[in-house]
């Protein structure tokens, strides 16, 4: 067979187009291939989740911040002192803001202004993961939505994607704003996004998350949803439970018990 230059270019072009069909299809088809990981199988047997028992939480003395302080201390979360550049992994908001869909006007108990603990919901179908252009954030098989600070380019698209406002951005070098540095956990540089990681580094050592450990009222319950006798499963049994914006289809794994 004889080729002139044009013919060669045409055939090459068509071949390239043909070869790109399959990867192209994979991008747009719904299957999100998990990152190949040797730990995948053992991790897939677990599904970490947390339940927040609001009644117990509200029985603590007013302004209790034990869980938040523990979290922020252990993870070197800076306190910048302004709302503008605030960085937070866990925080509280009044009940009526967290669950705007709940009818509170005529309900007898007045818990409109009571604080509700908020953190990353570690969604089963996390929107933030889809938007990240570098896979700096991804979902581990045990359900933890991870954040790789080494890879984040700081585009903040994940923040735009998260409907819960769980992500914070480092507007400046955070180190000078950390009161006491915990050498066991890295700090971050300016220009990357960070969020709650369900204390993945503690789970690896067989410990429970810092906030759960710090709560004196035992209002935070943590465990493996795939184990029928786990604490979190027991806590959820026969109770009215809420999630934040379940209608968005993100399948959050932080439950609120009232």
């Amino acid at each position: 067979m004889q080729f002139d230059r044009r013919g060669f270019l045409k055939i090459t072009g068509l071949t390239l187009l043909g070869l790109s069909a399959k990867p192209g299809w994979e991008v747009f088809s719904k299957i999100d291939q998990p990152e190949p990981s040797p730990m995948a199988e053992s991790l897939a047997k677990i599904r970490w989740a947390m339940a927040v028992d609001l009644k117990k939480c509200w029985s603590a003395k007013e302004g209790c911040r034990d869980c938040i302080d523990a979290c922020h201390r252990i993870h070197n979360v800076p306190n910048l002192g302004t709302l503008k550049e605030e960085i937070k992994w866990t925080w509280t908001e009044p009940y009526e803001k967290v669950f705007p869909e709940h009818e509170l006007e005529y309900s007898e108990e007045n818990h409109r202004d009571k604080p509700v603990l908020l953190l990353c919901n570690q969604c089963d179908d996390p929107p933030c993961v889809k938007y990240c252009p570098t896979r700096a954030t991804w979902r581990r098989e045990d359900g933890i939505v991870m954040m790789d600070f080494h890879r984040c380019i700081g585009c903040r698209y994940c923040m735009a994607g998260c409907p819960y406002g769980s992500r914070s951005f480092n507007w400046r070098d955070p180190r000078p704003f950390i009161k006491k540095i915990n050498p066991e956990y890295p700090t971050r540089t300016r220009g990357v996004v960070e969020k709650c990681n369900f204390c993945v580094e503690r789970l690896a050592q067989g410990l429970i998350p810092a906030c759960v450990e710090a709560c004196k009222e035992k209002a935070l319950i943590f465990g493996d949803l795939k184990k029928p006798d786990s604490e979190v499963r027991k806590a959820l049994q026969n109770r009215v439970i809420y999630q934040r914006h379940p209608e968005l289809g993100t399948k959050p794994k932080v439950y609120y018990i009232l």
Binding site: P38, M39, L43, W138, M146, H150, A204
Partner: peptide, 10 residues
């Protein structure tokens, strides 16, 4: 780095 952060092998 890759092993700990991305694969969870410590």
């Amino acid at each position: 780095k890759f092993s700990v952060v991305r694969n969870g092998i410590r």
